[in-house]
Design a protein around this nucleic acid. Sequence first.
DNA 1: TCGTTAACCAAACAATCGCTTGCCTAAGGG
DNA 2: CCCTTAGGCAAGCGATTGTTTGGTTAACGA
Lengths: 202, 202
Amino acid sequence: MELITDRPPSPSPAKTRGNNRAAALLDAAAVLFASQGYHRTTIRDITSAIGMRSGSSYYHFASKAEMLLAVYDEGIRRVQQSIEQALADAPAEPWAQLEAALTGHIAAVLDPSAYARTIVAVLPSDVPELSDEITAKRDAYESQWRSFIGALDAPVDPSLLRVFLLSAANSTQVWYREGGAPPAAIARFIIDLLQNPLEART
Amino acid sequence: MELITDRPPSPSPAKTRGNNRAAALLDAAAVLFASQGYHRTTIRDITSAIGMRSGSSYYHFASKAEMLLAVYDEGIRRVQQSIEQALADAPAEPWAQLEAALTGHIAAVLDPSAYARTIVAVLPSDVPELSDEITAKRDAYESQWRSFIGALDAPVDPSLLRVFLLSAANSTQVWYREGGAPPAAIARFIIDLLQNPLEART
DNA sequence: TCGTTAACCAAACAATCGCTTGCCTAAGGG
DNA sequence: CCCTTAGGCAAGCGATTGTTTGGTTAACGA
């Protein structure tokens, strides 16, 4: 029966100034939130992953909920950046822009840093106290997809198409294994499904 | 500061024989697991939903984990049944069979009894102690989709197509609102996306 | 009628949770 | 040189968790 509250940090941590480990904390939180969800991840899990004691996290973040919000913000920032990067290399034509955005989204979701994965894994209903804030951040991101799909001017319900596209892209998080097809190939596959009928192919 | 351990049951529950409330327990567990996930749902949440004390659940189920397994089994049973029912009313042609299966799957996911929703909401990684068992049950279900998609004989990666179809169907759980389009209409929309190219529609 | 048992309740258990408090230490600024 | 402060650690707080234990009651079979 151990009486130790926290697991001991492996090497005696550097206690110098300018050695702020808030970023390392967030990295560990992102990985754990994404892979285990919010409730199964404990403050002690996160801190011990970087050799820190549980109480010390409150020097950097006021609460567990604020850590999640910080991960969420950084996640959305990275997805946006990933999409912008993909868009820059693509033709201006609507379908090409949509495919590029899809590539950027998938690339962010598959990024090992796990920030974007947290957005997919932790739903607003998981943390009712933050439901409104999380929903607002998600909506702000998803709304830009309306313009991508609206630009297609395709004769389908645009919101249904948007939901199906995003859910297909997010599902990569579940089935993707290391060394699989690159994000661009997955996006190509999805767009190809929409452009070319399955029945009449060569 | 209340000293009561559990919330009191509203009406004094009938303590007669043959009044086994294991089924009611499972119903409540399914709703809570599906809407809140496994870890955020407590035994006390489940039992108090049907006016029972937390300890009494251990007369029916050996642990919280076994309750989840029971919900999982019932959920898969109901999806299978929903699919079989839809298949019976459909032509034998492969595309029609696939559309019928999709209709059955969506109908089960949207069923208010929430058993099927738990399968979608609670992933193997959420409960590592049950990861193997849960994965096995999920694989057993998903494998039948291989035959549906294989029968199409379409020139695409069948496992990718399977994953995207299921993720699209499961996403209904997130966006569907009461009084929306019926399952058959949603399935028709998805199949139509695959059969008719978006660019060349009237 | 009487013992058995299905189906619970009441109360508490140890473990774990998010979080707080008080202290320490070493790097800076003046 | 000394004081301040960044960046933690050690220890424990109250609350909540899944689970256990020991009753209690009423329907049953013999």
